[in-house]
Simulated scan of single mutants.
Amino acid sequence: MTSILTNVAAMAALSTLRSIETGMEDTQARVSSGLRVGEASDNAAYWSIATTMRSDNMALSAVQDALGLGAAKVDTAYAGMDSAIEVVKEIKAKLVAATEDGVDKDKIQEEITQLQDQLTSISDAASFSGENWLQTDLSFGTVTKSVVGSFVRDDAGNVSVKKVDYDLSASSVLFDTVGNTGILDSTTAIEDNSITLNINTGGVVSPVTVAAYTIDQVIADTGSVFTGDSATGGAKSYVKVSDDVWVEAVDQSTVPTQEVAFNDTTNGIMWAVDTTAAPAATTNASVSTLNIDASTTGTQLDKLISMVDDALTLMTSAAADLGSIGMRIDLQSEFVSKLTDSIDKGVGRLVDADMNEESTRLKALQTQQQLAVQSLSIANSASQNILTLFR
């Protein structure tokens, strides 16, 4: 049946044209944005995943920046520590040279003083972005420095920031800015002039700290005459209590309740320890403050060399730790970069449009649109044909 009131063919052609235009709008949106899922209405699940992962990628980008900053701090600290090691090696070499007989120790000390000033300069300068890992306040114990290492989302969706830690302690810091517990400013006893002995007096044994002397010091006491493990004739009398350790002695008859330390049968004298001989102050030194002169003994030089060598051992260990943490930061930075790329690829697989497919679909829809317009035109002209029936 042909009707001029209801054009069924035109209605069908118009419906088809509308459907094609809707398809073209969707396809053109994908072509222009490059996204197959551009909003939640396209695919709620994929859109949600992509939005979350893009947010995580932004966090990872911040992590990568933080890793770069951390790497700079570590590199600065390592450069300072490495330079300080070379300076301390020079100090050690100067001390070894000072053990040579006849050498001018005062001149050597002048060189050591310049090296000590250089150590201070290195420590002060090894700062990046306001942080110095070679000197800090250790009065409250170990100070932990952290570098942001990663942003993590676990299976339950919980997020956390992982950090790479480095401890500033007495074994890794060159200078303690408040006290003297750093590697270079911690003090060591160079000459301990005391010894603690357990003295039996009247049957009661109690510890007593008295002055201690080496055999060289006893010999230096002009007039000392040795008889076995005792020495007399100088300014003081001495008795040997252990290997190369001598203490001041008194005739045991003056302190009859004290046990005999040494029986000098040659001279018929029994010696006791002089418990009133107070020790002199202990001589301490640090790498940054040690000072030698003509009066510095060989024993003291040996202890100074040992002290500097111990400091070198700690500094080498600290440099190794800095090198290790620097390597870890480099590895983590590389991993974060790869992880970011992987997340970008994963998100792309979910929401990116296949441009080859979309271009083909757009071309087909354009053709369909032209045909639909042509079909609608034909359907609309059908009612015109009815006029020929009334001529």
Rank of each mutant, 00 (worst) to 15 (best):
Q370G: 07
L331H: 15
F226L: 02
T388R: 14
E21W: 05
A40G: 09
V273W: 00
G326L: 08
S242H: 12
T51I: 05
G157I: 00
T188N: 10
D251P: 08
A77N: 04
G23I: 02
N200A: 06
K105F: 00
Y166T: 07
G130I: 00
L95F: 07
T257N: 13
G228R: 02
A318L: 07
F262L: 05
D124T: 03
D117R: 05
D244C: 07
S333V: 10
S306Q: 13
G182I: 01
I386E: 10
M327P: 15
D330Q: 15
N263Y: 14
K303N: 09
D293H: 00
V152G: 07
S41K: 06
T316E: 07
T142S: 09
I122G: 03
S61I: 09
S359H: 13
T254L: 15
V159G: 13
Q300P: 04
F175E: 06
D192P: 02
V260M: 05
L60Q: 10
G179D: 06
L365C: 00
V8S: 11
Q135I: 01
A9Q: 07
S129C: 11
M11S: 15
V210L: 00
L290C: 04
D293C: 02
G348R: 06
S83G: 13
V241S: 00
S286C: 02
V241T: 01
E39T: 06
G298R: 02
T227H: 11
N385P: 09
N57Q: 11
Q300V: 07
R391A: 04
F335S: 09
G202C: 05
L69D: 13
K338C: 12
D344H: 11
F390D: 05
V148R: 03
F335W: 13
T209F: 03
V308A: 10
V204P: 10
D352A: 05
D244K: 10
L389M: 11
L350N: 01
T214L: 05
T2C: 14
